[in-house]
């Protein structure tokens, strides 16, 4: 059996410069400790694809200059307001923004997991979301005459990265109800996961846990990172750190403040 449990930095090795990196929405288990480690390593030119939105993770990576392009249906800090570095970078035009809509991203990942080149989706026709996506096409429904429908190319990321409650030594990862993490892993060539803890035994042999488990077959590497989603939540484990996010929103409003945040919470490794 290959060794899947690694140190955080070793586990992140597949995420090289220029990587097409899939990241989950803020409430399902975002690998924030791993994100800070990537920034410390100085990763460059990431092509981020959010399934289907992002918050602090995309904002930090953009602010730290790690991002070449971002495909997402939204980036915000939720009740803490706009994502400041994302907003500033869009206004300055310093990275390529690919605006999408949530179900389009879900559908495009599903196309990749099925190994088909595209997926049709209702809606979108007449929107400027579609108008600014030359890679999305309209065809006539081949089964029913005059019925235009949008086709979305499959999204097959190089790596999917997320945080989950636990994994076993076989690389099986328990994701519980957050099923889109399974879709993300199926779609990606490699999947890297950080977890709160290692589960003794085999998750797939546990009747109650097996259905909520991503099989280790899909998993390239696992690293333990306690409170690895902090300051974002991990479902049923911990909530948003509202105080920290409010502080972030305030600091990241300016470049100087953002640099100070990186110094305090990313480079100093206090947060990791």
């Amino acid at each position: 059996m290959p060794q899947v449990i690694r140190t955080l930095d070793e586990a992140l090795a597949p995420i090289g410069d220029g990587c097409v990196l899939a990241i989950p929405r803020e409430s399902t288990g975002v690998a924030m400790a791993a994100t800070r480690a990537l920034i410390r390593r100085g990763v460059k030119r990431l092509n981020l694809v959010a399934l289907p939105t992002s918050s602090l993770q995309a904002d930090l990576l953009i602010g730290a200059g790690c991002v070449e392009s971002l495909e997402t249906s939204a980036v915000s800090l939720g009740e803490f307001g706009l994502a400041p570095r994302f907003t500033a970078a869009v206004l300055a035009g310093t990275f390529t923004m690919k605006d999408a809509t949530c179900p389009a991203l879900h559908a495009a990942f599903q196309a990749a997991e099925k190994g088909v080149p595209f997926m049709p989706l209702r809606g979108l026709i007449g929107s400027d979301v579609l108008a600014h996506r030359p890679d999305w096409k309209i065809i006539d429904n081949p089964f029913d005459g005059d019925d235009p429908i949008v086709l979305l190319p499959a999204i097959a990321p190089d790596v999917a990265l997320f945080h989950a409650p636990m994994a076993d030594r076989h690389g099986n990862v328990w994701i519980g109800r957050q099923r889109e993490l399974i879709t993300m892993a199926h779609a990606a060539a490699k999947t890297v996961v950080t977890v709160e803890k290692i589960h003794d035994g085999n998750l797939l042999e546990d009747r109650e846990l097996a259905a909520g488990t991503l099989p280790g077959f899909y998993v390239e590497a696992v690293a333990v990172a306690e409170r690895g989603a902090w300051p974002l939540p991990l479902p049923e484990h911990y909530a948003w750190d509202g105080k920290h996010l409010a502080e972030y929103a305030k600091l990241a409003a300016t470049e100087e403040g953002f640099a100070q945040y990186l110094e305090q919470h990313v480079y100093e490794k206090k947060a990791a």
Binding site: A74, V90, A100, C102, R122, G123, V129
Partner: peptide, 18 residues
């Protein structure tokens, strides 16, 4: 070259239709 940026379209480009 926008003068203001909001978070993004979320699911609106689909849900508004269906």
């Amino acid at each position: 070259k926008p003068t203001a940026r909001f978070p993004g379209s979320f699911g609106s480009a689909y849900l508004y239709f269906v």
